[in-house]
Amino acid sequence: MTADPLAEHRPHLLAVGYRLTGSRADAEDAVQDAWLRWDRLGDEGRAAVRDVRAWLATTVSRLCLDRVRSAPARRERYVGPWLPEPLVTTGPDDVFDAVAARQDVRMAALLVLEHLTPDQRVAFVLHDGAGVGFDDVAEVLGCTTTTARQHASRARRSVAAATAAGRLPDPVPAPEQRRVLDAFLAALAAGDVPAPVAVLHPDAELRTDGGGIVKAARRVVRGADRIARLLVALAQETGPELLAAVRPVTVNGEVGMLLPAPDQVGPPMVGVLTVADGRAVGVHVVMTPEKLRA
């Protein structure tokens, strides 16, 4: 057993907490609290743990459970579309870079998790994502093992349905993502609606998360033409300087962008495209300041 198992398993545990809550800060808090509980076990208690990785993952899940179960009510009160706190790759010293490299933390994947019930989400993330047995999942959820299996099975069916409907497309290689992003930005700079329409999937969706704090669309905008008209109007309103200052970055493991705040004072906004069949099927822009501090 390693002297400090948290160091070994930290990226895995952060991924569990982040997939459950969509919050980097909540994931970090849960992992820190899990370490404190591990430390309080003492030498004898730690020696009795058969699977340290599973013990830590279930502990993180328990710590996140209240927040997961309260999420539906909080989402109902949330102003406008909700997006998870973005993971912007900053370099090898950021442990979240290892988390962001996972395919299951892509924006599209996290939005699919939002459609699960809280117990389905916990069962799916713990069992299918973290490899925790159903007996332990049941203990976290306070249900029978059979019920825990049912929660995971229903979650699996929901994820499969989202994949079949195109809401969770297969990952696309980074060069293809970058090609679509460059074409998207060039189309917006052109200033006419047909250009971005050609880059967007006909059933594309735009989500702008302003949280009621900054100006953003209050609903999901659906359809290439509607999205193009809105974004072209915004680009014309802000002027070419904003598009010229866009910087490509990696967001949740995919090619994204940093956009200057409209007032040039707040933190930069974070955008990321979900790409399928050579076009953008999802445009996600996080604008809420508290989600951008990291």
Rank of each mutant, 00 (worst) to 15 (best):
R50C: 01
D51M: 01
D51F: 07
V52M: 04
R53P: 04
R53F: 10
R53A: 12
A54H: 14
A54L: 09
A54E: 14
W55S: 10
W55I: 09
W55F: 13
L56Q: 08
L56G: 05
L56A: 14
A57S: 15
A57R: 07
T58W: 03
T58H: 04
T59D: 10
V60M: 05
V60D: 01
V60P: 00
S61M: 06
S61A: 15
S61T: 13
R62M: 13
L63E: 07
L63P: 02
C64D: 01
C64M: 05
C64Y: 00
C64Q: 00
L65V: 05
D66L: 06
D66A: 14
D66Q: 10
D66V: 08
D66T: 11
R67F: 00
R67K: 09
R67W: 00
R67C: 02
R69K: 03
R69M: 03
S70E: 10
S70W: 03
A71P: 00
A71Q: 06
A71I: 01
P72F: 02
P72L: 03
P72A: 05
P72V: 01
A73C: 00
A73S: 07
R74E: 12
R74L: 06
R75S: 06
R75G: 02
R75P: 03
E76Q: 12
E76H: 06
E76W: 05
R77E: 13
R77C: 01
R77G: 10
Y78H: 15
Y78P: 02
Y78G: 01
Y78L: 07
V79I: 13
V79K: 06
V79D: 13
G80H: 05
G80N: 11
P81G: 10
P81I: 07
P81Q: 10
P81E: 11
W82Q: 04
L83S: 05
P84R: 02
P84T: 04
P84L: 03
P84C: 04
P84A: 07
P84E: 03
P84D: 04
P84N: 05
P84Q: 01
E85L: 00
E85Y: 01
P86E: 08
P86H: 07
P86M: 07
P86A: 09
P86N: 06
P86F: 05
P86R: 07
L87D: 08
L87V: 15
L87T: 06
V88G: 09
V88M: 12
T89K: 14
T89A: 15
T90Y: 10
T90L: 13
T90K: 13
G91P: 07
G91R: 12
P92D: 15
P92Y: 11
D93F: 12
D93L: 13
D93E: 14
D93R: 13
D93C: 03
V95C: 06
F96G: 01
F96H: 04
D97E: 14
V99M: 04
A100D: 10
A100K: 05
A100H: 06
A100W: 06
A100R: 03
A101E: 15
A101S: 15
A101K: 12
A101N: 11
A101Y: 12
R102N: 11
R102K: 13
Q103W: 14
